[in-house]
Structures are given as structure tokens and as C-alpha cells.
Design a protein around this nucleic acid. Structure first.
Length: 371
RNA sequence: GGGGUCGUAGUUAAGUUGGUUAUAACGCCGGCCUGUCACGCCGGAGGCCGAGGGUUCGAGUCCCUUCGACCCCG
């Protein structure tokens, strides 16, 4: 994997290009989440058509079903799901957090009780790498321990140290150097622990660095504070990935702190639950106020949904439980996110990201955003 | 004409031997969603218990009348 910086804004944001065995990614980039080998509700062709250059898969979920060996035998994840571009796989570290009640942790690794059938499965730093290599991901993530919020200092400290030990084991066990491996910074919401975690992970050395354990329920100010404290410590010549974040506002802030990669279920999950992002107000499409609204969802959006359908129709589809509601809503939300990233990259390239960001938040506050 | 069953929220239903503010589901209205256990989660509004009369300290529950729906027998 190669990372080339193309332009840098005086305020610290940068645009660049990541080259992987399956193609390039222009950064800053938003990566749609396709946990089980599918971006929910869309075909890969649609995802690509929306401007996505790289998507996510998940180690835990694909290991459990259909199994990484099967996927390897069938030609790897790219071929299995018919996604020709780059894929980043998360390690299962997030499931240590999200499936809290279904797992037990030890220094060796984590034992999950399958959420599907209750069977027990052991995931270690080594097996997490092995699974991701079998999947054929372009970027693998180290197995980390993602802790919930709130968490005490002692717990955050213990988790960041274990994450560092696991990171070393991940690096040691990797076999295929053509697949990039990213280390993950933890440390809870304690800036000094974040710094310590960064030092530990940096000293091991990875192809890219991720900030994990943020946006797990903490107040936004804490998230931004820890982001600001940690991002500058990450080497400028490696991609920086803010895991699991976030809202459009979070992306704009993340970029301002020099983040290159984001992923989040928000656009896709919200779409399926009827929350649609626009350049104006957020639209809860099931609300009765849209029942007779013949206008497009977002008149400034260039997506298939906004070009062809009214809010009234989208509401009708949603309340009727039509599958098409999820398809059209996901198309829009993802396009909204991906177009935001396009505009961000353009602004950085033209050296006007500071103005872009200021205008972005000014318009949000005024609620009069147009373009 | 005779007999029976049943009328409870917008809908379908539950309501124990009569006993505090009459339940649920769906629907309706609103909110939430941050490395996906997620077409999900949370909350809210909404009932002269068909109508009238009676028994009782107290009736959605018991009795009478009446209206309506359905079924059976002539």
C-alpha cells in the first residue's frame, strides 16, 4: 500500500491518494460499511456509482457466516461479493464493545458466544489477522479492545496496554505484506492516555493508524478534545483513520484535524430507519408533514432518489414497508456523504478548507444551507 | 316466529369468584440511531366498555329492556 499526499491545507487537513492492490482511494474518504459482505440495500454497482471508492467488511461477522475459509476458496471477499475496489476489514475489536454481554476477554484473546446460534468462538490477534488475510482485504485492522463510555481511567489504561500488546502480536503474525495493516490507538477519553497509546502503537510501526474507541456514547466535546489531542501525534506520511465516525459535522471536524479515512453506519442505518440527511434540515421521512409534499428530498442533491422521487412518495414507501424505501433512502444518504467528501477534497486542493468548514457550520446553524 | 353467541381504543382482541388510574398487538403521532446482534429502539396520544334502566358500598363483569352483527331451528 502506498499513501501519497497531494495537497495540504494550512490548517492541517490534507488530501491524498492511497494505492491498494484493488485500486486507489482519494482521501479524505468516507467508507460505506458492508459488515457482512454487503452494503445493506444496495448492489456493489450502485455503491460504486455513488462515488464510493472503498468499503468495509467485518472479520467477526464474516468468520461466523459464511466462514473465511469458504470465502478464500471462492476467490476472496472481492470476488465473493463482486466488489472490485479496495476493502478494509475491521478486526472484530468493535464487537468486543458492541457484543459486551456475549463475550469474555483474556490476554490471549476473546471468546464470543455467537449471536446467531450461541456457539462459542475464540478470536485472537493472530486469528484476526489470519481471517482478514483469508478474506483478502486490502487493509487489515489490528484486533483491539474498544471500551465503552463511561469507563474509568484504570480500565482505559488496561485496555490501551492490552491493545498495544495485541497490536504487536498482529504485526508479528501477518504473512502477506501486500495487504496493509493498521494499528489502533485507544485510551478512552483521557488525552494523556491517548498520547501514551499513540506512542506505543507508533513504536511498533504500521502502514496506517486509526483512532478507535471514539463516538461510543461520550459527549461530542470529549470526542473532539481527544481527536485534537491525538491526531497531531500520528505521522503525516501515513493514512489516519477515525473509526466509526460519524455525522457529517464529525467528518468536517475530523478532516480539519488531518483525518484521511472515516467509516460509519450512520448514513446506511439511518436510511433504513427513515432519517435522511440533506443540505438543509434532517428529514424524518415518516413524519406526517411529508404526506403531501411533492418536492424532492433535497433539491441540491444529484442522486437518483432526489432527481426522481418526491418526499410524499418516499414517505409512502417507508410507512408501507416497501423494500424500495431502503434502497432509495440508502442511495440518497450515501450520496450525501460521498458528495460531502468530494467537496471537502476539492476545498483542500484549492487551499480553502478553512472557509469551507466555517461556511459549513454557519449554514447548519442558520438552517439555510443550499450548496 | 323461536333459540343461541357476541358487541371493550382507528382495527383485532384480553379482561380472573363484581373491587383502585380498563390491558395488549397492530395502526396513528413524535423522538433516537456514530469501526451494524439493527426493515431497529424509545416515548406519546387515543375508550360514556352499543344504548337505557335495575341490583350493589362498588358493574366492562350480575339482572331486565332495547338496538346491532352473526349462527342454528322452524
Amino acid at each position: 500500500m502506498e499513501f501519497r499526499r497531494i495537497a495540504e491545507d494550512p490548517c492541517g487537513s490534507r488530501t491524498g491518494r492511497i494505492e491498494t492492490p484493488h485500486g486507489e482511494v482519494e482521501t479524505p474518504a468516507f467508507m460505506p460499511v458492508g459488515t457482512q459482505g454487503a452494503v445493506k440495500a444496495l448492489t456493489p454497482e450502485q455503491v460504486q456509482g455513488l462515488g464510493a471508492q472503498i468499503i468495509l467488511g467485518n472479520t467477526y461477522h464474516l468468520y461466523l457466516r459464511p466462514g473465511h475459509r469458504l470465502i478464500r476458496e471462492l476467490g476472496g471477499l472481492h470476488r465473493f461479493m463482486n466488489w472490485p475496489g479496495p476493502i478494509l476489514t475491521d478486526s472484530g475489536g468493535f464487537q468486543i464493545y458492541s457484543l459486551g454481554a456475549l463475550r469474555t476477554l483474556s490476554e490471549e484473546g476473546v471468546t464470543f458466544q455467537s449471536h446467531i446460534d450461541g456457539s462459542r468462538h475464540f478470536l485472537s490477534p493472530e486469528s484476526a489477522v489470519e481471517i482478514q488475510e483469508a478474506l483478502g482485504s486490502d487493509i487489515l485492522m489490528c484486533l483491539d479492545e474498544c471500551i465503552p463510555y463511561p469507563a474509568g481511567r484504570a480500565e482505559a489504561e488496561r485496555a490501551l496496554e492490552r491493545t498495544a500488546r495485541w497490536a504487536a502480536r498482529c504485526k508479528k503474525s501477518r504473512r502477506n505484506p501486500s495487504q496493509a495493516l493498521f494499528g489502533i490507538i485507544q485510551g478512552g477519553v483521557y488525552p494523556d492516555l491517548r498520547r501514551r497509546s499513540a506512542e506505543a502503537i507508533l513504536s511498533i510501526g504500521f502502514d496506517g493508524y486509526a483512532l478507535g474507541g471514539l463516538s461510543v456514547g461520550e459527549p461530542k466535546e470529549l470526542m473532539l478534545e481527544n481527536l485534537a489531542a491525538t491526531a497531531p501525534l500520528l505521522p503525516a506520511d501515513r493514512p489516519r483513520y477515525l473509526m466509526g465516525v460519524g455525522t457529517p459535522e464529525d467528518l468536517v471536524e475530523g478532516v480539519a484535524h488531518g483525518i484521511d479515512l472515516f467509516d460509519c453506519v450512520m448514513p446506511t442505518r439511518s436510511a433504513r430507519n427513515g432519517l435522511l440527511f440533506t443540505n438543509g434540515e434532517k428529514v424524518v421521512i415518516k413524519n406526517a408533514r411529508y404526506r403531501e409534499d411533492g418536492s424532492p428530498l433535497d433539491s441540491t442533491c444529484d442522486c437518483y432518489t432526489c432527481r426522481n422521487y418526491s418526499r410524499a412518495y418516499l414517505r409512502h414507501l417507508y410507512v408501507s414497508g416497501e423494500i424500495l424505501a431502503m434502497v432509495l433512502n440508502t442511495i440518497h444518504n450515501l450520496r450525501h456523504y460521498l458528495r460531502l467528501m468530494e467537496r471537502i477534497r476539492e476545498a483542500i486542493r484549492e487551499g480553502r478548507y478553512r472557509e469551507f468548514r466555517e461556511r459549513f457550520f454557519r449554514e447548519r446553524q442558520a438552517g439555510t444551507a443550499d450548496e
